[in-house]
């Protein structure tokens, strides 16, 4: 049996798999839509990742599952929360990490992490979708701007629209009013990003961290949100090349630890 392991993160929107060898090198990864069947999505993600690494699934010695659908992966040797996995993955990529900001599809998490990659404290949004990827999805649909184009648009904004509401539904009606007043779309998008950042910023303040900050989750791909978050925290933020797979990466690291 070789020392390859798989970490799999079954999230609300995507399911991600990372294959790692025993020297902690990432051999391959995959990102597939979760859809309505988490078990099938997990199998697909693992098969795709294994194929990319030139492996068969039988070659993998250990599997750790994380994410909301972690219970739906029957092959898993162990299940670990995405909070612990994002922390472990972020510290692996950026050893100076003391705080992880994970803005995912349905929730946001701010995690205080020790140098050993262990979680010391965490905060999650528990009121509504504001401050999550879902909020950006709703706004993207309303403005008819592709989700992955929102970051570049907001970076080019000269001004910024004020989105005062912290509720997705009410914010949407504010956006409608701004559109009706012919407010430039760049400014609206920047205002939307500011709204997300303010929401998450309130969570980060509860943890009082002064060291390195790493952003994970799909929203970390949005340059506009990252720029505004950096402005807020007053320092550069670490952003992985593939922020979506950090949870799966952490799960793979747990799989190695458990071997």
């Amino acid at each position: 049996m070789k020392g390859w392991v798989i970490g799999i993160d079954v999230g609300s929107l995507t399911t991600d798999a990372v294959i790692m060898d025993e020297d902690k090198r990432v051999l391959s990864f995959s990102i597939v839509d979760t859809g309505y069947n988490s078990t099938d999505a997990a199998r697909e993600a693992m098969t795709v990742a294994a194929g990319r690494a030139g492996l068969e699934l039988e070659d993998v010695s250990r599997l750790v599952a994380t994410g909301y659908g972690r219970a739906a992966v029957p092959e898993a040797n162990k299940r670990v929360t995405e909070i612990a996995c994002h922390a472990a993955g972020a510290v692996y990529l950026f050893p100076d990490t003391e705080m992880v900001i994970d803005i995912g599809g349905q929730d946001s998490k701010v995690i205080k992490v020790g140098k050993d990659g262990r979680v010391q404290d965490f905060v999650m949004n528990d009121k509504c979708a504001a401050g999550t990827g879902r909020f950006l999805e709703v706004m993207s649909a309303k403005l008819k701007i592709p989700l992955d184009g929102m970051g570049d648009i907001s970076i080019s904004a000269r001004g910024e629209a004020a989105i005062s509401s912290v509720c997705t539904v009410f914010a949407e009606s504010e956006v409608v009013s701004l559109v009706a007043r012919n407010c430039p779309k760049e400014e609206i998008v920047k205002g939307i990003h500011r709204s997300v950042v303010n929401r998450v910023w309130a969570m980060t303040r509860q943890l009082r961290v002064s060291g390195g900050v790493t952003m994970t989750g799909g929203v970390a791909k949005n340059r506009g949100v990252v720029a505004l978050m950096e402005e807020r925290v007053g320092r550069r933020i670490n952003v992985p090349d593939e922020p979506q797979i950090v949870g799966a990466l952490g799960a793979a690291l747990f799989a190695l630890r458990e071997k």
């Binding site: 909301y68 929360t81 909070i83 612990a84 262990r118 979680v119 010391q120 965490f122 999650m124």
Partner: peptide
């Protein structure tokens, strides 16, 4: 923070488990 008869959401399950891991 929960309503009295609210079912246990996946998010709350995750928070409880993450707390136990901590």
């Amino acid at each position: 923070e929960n309503e009295i008869n609210q079912a246990l959401s996946g998010q709350i399950v995750t928070r409880i488990e993450a707390f136990a891991e901590m």
